[in-house]
Amino acid sequence: TTTITTTNEEDARRIATEWKNKGYTVHVEKRGTTFRIEVR
């Protein structure tokens, strides 16, 4: 599992989409101002 964190919502969406397009399972969680993107 790879975890990526960013405070930028646009980055979070872009990163999540990129990983999904590669065939990975992506889970995005917002904690306060931080977005945690888990890639499996």
Rank of each mutant, 00 (worst) to 15 (best):
E9Q: 07
T33W: 05
T1H: 11
I4H: 06
A16T: 06
T34Q: 13
K30N: 06
V39I: 15
N8K: 06
N21C: 10
T17D: 13
T25A: 10
D11N: 07
T1K: 10
E38K: 08
R36V: 15
T3F: 14
A16K: 03
I37L: 04
E10Q: 10
V26R: 00
R40W: 14
I4Q: 03
I15A: 03
G32M: 03
K20D: 04
N21V: 07
T2I: 15
R31D: 15
E29T: 14
R36I: 15
R40T: 14
I37K: 00
T3D: 04
A12R: 01
T1D: 08
I37G: 00
E29F: 12
R40Q: 11
V28S: 03
I37N: 00
H27D: 06
T2A: 09
I15H: 03
V28C: 13
V26I: 05
T3K: 05
T5P: 02
E10N: 08
R13W: 14
R31L: 14
H27T: 14
R13F: 13
N21Q: 10
I37W: 00
V28M: 07
G23F: 02
K22Y: 05
W19L: 09
T2Y: 14
K30V: 10
Y24L: 04
W19I: 03
E10D: 11
E9N: 04
T7I: 07
I37Q: 00
H27S: 12
G32T: 03
V26C: 03
R13S: 07
E18P: 00
N8Q: 05
G23L: 02
T1N: 09
N8R: 06
E18V: 07
K30H: 08
E38P: 00
N8I: 06
V28W: 07
R31H: 14
T17K: 11
H27Q: 08
A16F: 07
T1C: 15
T3G: 04
V26D: 00
R31C: 14
G32F: 04
T25I: 14
I15R: 02
G32D: 08
G32V: 02
T6N: 02
E18Y: 15
K30W: 06
V39H: 01
K20E: 13
I4A: 03
E10M: 09
K22S: 05
K20T: 12
T6D: 01
T34N: 11
R40G: 09
T6K: 03
T5V: 13
D11M: 10
E9T: 04
V26G: 00
E29Q: 09
E38V: 15
K22N: 07
R36Q: 13
T33S: 13
R14W: 05
V39G: 01
K20I: 14
G32L: 04
R14K: 09
E38A: 06
T6E: 04
F35P: 01
T2G: 06
W19S: 02
E10G: 07
R36N: 10
H27L: 12
R40I: 14
R40K: 13
E10T: 09
K20L: 13
Y24D: 01
E29L: 08
E9M: 08
G23Q: 02
I4F: 15
R36E: 14
T5L: 14
T25R: 09
I15T: 04
G32S: 04
I15Y: 04
R13I: 14
T5I: 15
N21D: 11
E29C: 14
R40F: 14
T5R: 06
Y24W: 05
T34F: 12
T2P: 06
A16E: 08
E9P: 09
V26E: 00
K30L: 10
V28N: 01
T2N: 08
K20F: 11
R40L: 13
T5Y: 15
R14L: 07
K30G: 04
R31K: 11
I15W: 06
N8E: 06
R14T: 06
E9Y: 13
N21G: 07
I4K: 02
K30E: 05
A16V: 11
I37S: 00
D11V: 09
I37Y: 00
A12H: 02
V28L: 07
N8S: 12
A12Y: 03
E9R: 08
T34S: 11
A16H: 03
K22R: 12
V28E: 02
G32W: 03
D11W: 08
T33Y: 08
H27N: 09
T25P: 04
K20Q: 12
V28G: 00
R31N: 13
T6P: 01
R14N: 07
R14A: 08
I4E: 03
R40N: 09
Y24S: 02
T2L: 15
V26Q: 00
T5H: 10
T17P: 00
V39W: 04
Y24V: 03
D11R: 06
T6I: 07
T17I: 12
K22M: 10
K22A: 09
R14Q: 07
I37E: 01
T7P: 06
F35W: 15
T17E: 14
T6R: 03
T33V: 10
T3P: 04
R40V: 13
K30C: 12
R36L: 15
E38M: 12
R13V: 12
W19D: 00
T34H: 12
T3W: 14
E10V: 09
W19C: 03
G23C: 05
T5C: 14
K22E: 05
K20N: 06
K30I: 09
N21R: 10
E38C: 14
T7V: 08
V26T: 04
E38N: 08
G23V: 01
T7S: 10
T33L: 12
E9H: 07
H27R: 10
R36D: 08
T33F: 08
R36Y: 15
V28Q: 02
I4M: 07
A12Q: 02
R13T: 09
T33M: 11
N8V: 07
R13H: 12
W19V: 03
T5A: 05
T25K: 09
T2R: 14
K22L: 11
H27V: 13
T2S: 08
I15K: 02
D11I: 08
T7Y: 12
N8F: 05
D11L: 11
A16I: 11
T17N: 12
I4V: 07
D11P: 00
R14S: 06
I37F: 00
R36A: 11
H27M: 10
R40Y: 14
N8T: 08
K30R: 10
Y24Q: 01
A16Y: 08
H27C: 15
V26A: 03
Y24M: 04
V39R: 03
N21K: 11
R36F: 15
T1G: 10
F35K: 01
R36W: 15
R31T: 13
T34M: 13
V39C: 06
W19Q: 03
R40H: 13
D11C: 13
H27G: 04
R31E: 13
G23D: 02
T1Y: 13
T17G: 08
R14H: 06
N21W: 05
K30M: 09
R13K: 12
E29K: 08
E38W: 10
A12N: 00
T6C: 13
T17W: 12
I4C: 11
T17F: 10
W19P: 00
T25Q: 12
K30T: 06
R14D: 05
F35T: 04
V39S: 01
T25G: 05
K20H: 10
G32P: 02
K20S: 11
T2F: 15
T5K: 06
T7E: 13
E38S: 11
T2H: 14
D11S: 07
T3C: 15
T2C: 15
E38L: 13
T7G: 08
I15N: 01
R31I: 15
R40P: 04
R13A: 10
G23I: 01
V39L: 07
N8L: 06
A12M: 08
E18M: 11
G32E: 06
K22P: 00
T7F: 10
E18R: 06
E29A: 07
Y24I: 02
T1M: 13
R40M: 13
W19A: 04
R13N: 11
K22V: 04
W19G: 01
F35R: 02
V28I: 12
T25Y: 12
R40A: 10
R13G: 06
E38D: 07
A12T: 04
T6A: 11
E38F: 13
I15M: 05
E10A: 12
T1Q: 09
T33R: 09
V26N: 00
G32R: 03
G23H: 03
T7W: 09
T33I: 11
I37D: 01
D11G: 04
T5S: 07
T6W: 02
K22G: 04
G32N: 05
T2D: 05
